[in-house]
Write a protein that binds this DNA or RNA. Structure first.
Length: 759
DNA sequence: TTAGGGTTAG
């Protein structure tokens, strides 16, 4: 069969492999363990689909040690560790004795069972074999505890470069930069692998300057070292540097390989630039780059991020049997990023196996598209399925969902899960917790988390300040910015926006002016905040003047602030001025019409109200409807305007009637201007049933203990009539009611609200 | 037949 052997040594593509396979079948040699082994080892090298490799393996009626070893190597190479372990069991059942070459493969696939295996190996007498001992050391370096690896390393009678390299990459994996560096410094000789490990280590530690220094100092470079540096740039978001390095590499005469292209494609993906993507595709075509499944998966992501879902889908279909969990995940996020959650969910439900990234992609997809309840539901499913453990990324999405819902109980539950699973939080993980507590109105908890952090970043400070701003605590916001500066952090544009907002909510005109004057280059958003502040304290003419003095074109937020201030102060002239601009800038936004109409309504100018409503109707604009949420018994109860779907709906409407009666008896007159008008007539109004806040409030009154504080979250602005109703109800029922709208808190107590500038 | 580079999620 020498001609088959001659073909076998020349195989360089999957197609050639299948042709050889066909010939082997023709010669009835496919049961022969020799050919089974040869074919499977080619499968490993060419990344063939697992089903194909397994088909070859299964055609051997009695696999021998070599067939088993090659199949184990294949599974190990593709990361199918559970298959490695299963196949090893089969091997033992078939009475094939493993040798010293099998154990390193097996060890690579084991995690916690490893210690037991170590003991087992000593019994079998393989302890002294250099490869086995080395594999055990590598295993400890990878899965920990790293000091076991170090112990084996120190006990070695002689150490080769590979042993040093194992230890160095092990230390990097466990984040021990110091030990990795000191081994690097004392080792007797280094090779290109040692240097590359250092480049990658510093890259993973996000220290690109040092990574580059090691890269530049390398005595020799190969394609892998170039790829390491290129990936360092790509993974840390330096697309330009990556492209520049690719050029240098080509100029240096190094031939890029598939891995090079994967890094380049993923750098382009981050830029989300369709033009760049197509020029890159041209380059790949010109060089006739072989597209393996890594390259194709990277391309799926790039097309998805550039918004070309059809192209992404094509490549995904093309992958066929090569589809793996990563390509499925890439497709899921391709769909969530354009907001197509149902297609994403369909893929998620259909995929053959899921990993933590699959769950995270889907949960984040819901969380980022405003489907917070779905995000939490899916997370509960993940926990109860017990297959995949959540990690920090999962928890950040879940906590973000809790934040948007103001779900404090669920947020605390999520925090418990973090503790139970000992999930280590990074700065952004802690920041998401600060955000959650701020959004739930627990500034004490937000500050507690803030102080628990070893190091904070600008975002930590900004999140805390935004929390104070929502509470209307201007002084705390200003004080936090002061501390931030003392600790050497430079406030950024978000910091100033938050502090100015806080001043605005608290009516701190002088302090706000001082902050505004301290901004070196105020942008349009800072002007908007300043105009909001001037407006809320009643300096409407000054606010209008400031707009004319702005060095840039005002955006909708600027006029929106002015309109809102005009409504509060009942300044029709300014309101109509602001509205006329808004109708030009964003004709589709019904909110501006509603604001203007509310201003007329609050002054009893019902003719104008009708006129504005008529205009809205003509333009086909409908008042935006938002949800109101109440957390009770570990669940979120949500209500929309006119909602009759809730299981306690009958009781809710009964209570609403009773409240109305009480209000009338207490002397709140039912004329057009009072809150009762709305309660009685809202059913008749276009699109409007009872507002969601009122339904949520009645539900909360029904289920909560008497005297307990009531918390409601509305994802839009609180309606003016609801705002009035809440004041009255807080007095009549003797209850404290806290309502969070999209960016601030209203605390109703004994007939008044903590905000003095709202309606 | 031990050591270095690759795709996806916040």
């Amino acid at each position: 069969m020498s001609h088959l052997n001659a073909i076998a040594v020349r195989i360089s593509s999957f197609k050639q492999l299948t042709q050889l396979h066909a010939q082997i079948i023709q010669h009835s040699l496919h049961h022969d363990n020799y050919w089974v082994s040869v074919l499977i080892s080619h499968c490993t090298r060419l990344c063939a689909p697992p089903s194909y490799a397994r088909l070859i393996f299964d055609s051997s009626h009695q696999p021998n040690l070599y067939a088993f070893t090659n199949m184990l190597k294949f599974y190990s190479h593709t990361g199918a560790h559970h298959h490695v372990i299963n196949l090893f069991q089969n091997m033992r059942l078939s009475n094939v004795m493993p040798d010293a070459f099998v154990f390193p493969i097996l060890i690579k696939s084991m995690e916690k069972e490893a210690v037991m295996l170590h003991a087992h190996l000593i019994k079998l007498g393989h302890q002294c074999d250099r490869f086995v001992r080395n594999a055990i050391m590598y295993m400890y370096a990878k899965y920990g505890p790293i000091y076991f690896a170090r112990k084996l390393f120190d006990e070695m009678p002689e150490r080769m470069v590979a042993d040093w390299n194992s230890m160095i990459s092990g230390y990097w994996r466990w984040g021990n930069e110091v030990e990795a560096g000191s081994l690097f410094n004392i080792m007797p000789e280094r090779n290109v692998i040692t240097w590359t490990a250092m480049v990658t280590g510093y890259s993973k530690a996000r220290d690109l300057v040092t990574a580059r220094r090691y890269f530049d100092q390398m005595p020799e470079k190969n394609v892998v070292s170039w790829n390491a540096m290129l990936s360092a740039y790509s993974q840390n978001g330096f697309a330009e540097e990556a492209m520049r390095l690719l050029n240098e590499m080509v100029v240096d005469g190094v031939q890029p390989d598939e891995t090079t292209w994967v890094a380049v494609i993923s750098a382009c993906a981050d830029r989300a630039d369709a033009k760049l993507a197509s020029s890159l595709m041209n380059m790949l075509n010109q060089r006739s780059v072989k597209l393996n499944y890594f390259v194709k998966t990277a391309l799926i992501d790039m097309y998805a991020k550039c918004g070309d879902l059809a192209a992404a889908k094509n490549i995904f279909e093309e992958l066929g049997a090569y589809r793996n969990v990563v390509s499925w995940n890439a497709m899921i996020s391709a769909h969530t990023s354009v907001g197509d959650l149902s297609s994403a969910r369909e893929l998620f439900d259909r995929m053959p196996s899921k990993d933590v990234v699959s769950w995270n992609s889907m949960i984040a997809g819901y969380a980022q598209n405003g489907q917070s309840t779905m995000a939490i539901e899916l997370f509960k499913k993940m926990i109860s399925s017990n297959h995949t453990k959540p990690d920090e990324v999962t928890m950040v999405s879940v906590i973000s969902a809790c934040s948007h819902l103001g779900a404090l109980e669920l947020g605390n539950w999520a925090l418990n899960i973090i503790d139970e699973n000992q999930i280590k939080l990074s700065i952004s993980g802690y920041n998401s917790l600060i955000f959650m507590y701020s959004k739930c109105g627990s500034m004490k908890d937000a500050e507690r988390i803030f102080h628990k952090m070893k190091t904070q970043d600008v975002i930590s400070f900004n999140t805390l300040i935004t929390g104070f701003a929502a509470q209307g605590d201007g002084f705390a916001a200003i004080d936090t910015m002061r501390k931030m500066k003392e600790q050497g952090f430079q406030p950024d544009r978000i910091t100033y926006i938050s502090v100015l907002t806080a001043c605005s909510h608290a009516g701190l005109l002088e302090q706000g002016k001082k902050v505004f004057d301290s901004i070196t280059n105020p942008d349009v958003d800072h002007y908007a905040c300043m105009i909001d502040l001037l407006g809320r304290v009643g300096n409407l003419d000054e606010a209008k003047n400031l707009i004319t003095r702005m060095p840039m074109v005002p955006h909708a937020g600027v006029y929106g602030s002015l309109l809102n201030a005009a409504r509060i102060r009942k300044r029709i002239d300014i309101g109509e001025f602001a509205a006329s601009h808004l109708f030009k800038i964003e004709p589709e936004n019904s909110g501006n019409y509603v604001l203007l109409s509310n201003m007329y309504a609050s002054m009893g100018r019902w003719g104008d109200v009708e006129r504005i409503r008529g205009k809205m109707k003509l333009l086909g604009l409908k008042k935006a409807t938002g949800w109101s949420y109440v957390e009770f018994d570990g669940k979120l109860h949500k209500f929309i305007v006119g909602d009759k779907a809730h299981e306690r709906s009958n009781d809710i409407y009964k209570l609403l009637m009773e409240l109305r009666k009480k209000m009338r008896i207490a002397g709140y007159i039912a004329d057009k201007e009072s809150v009762l008008r709305d309660v009685e007539e809202e059913e008749k109004e276009e699109m409007v049933g009872t507002h969601s806040e009122k339904l949520a409030l009645c539900f909360a009154l029904l289920v909560s203990e008497s005297g307990a504080v009531i918390r409601i979250v509305k994802n839009l602005r609180v309606c003016w009539d609801c705002h009035e109703a809440m004041k009255i109800i807080s007095k009549l029922e003797g209850r404290e009611i806290i309502v969070r709208d999209n960016n601030r808190f209203h605390c109703f107590n004994d007939g008044s609200c903590s905000c003095k500038d709202y309606w």
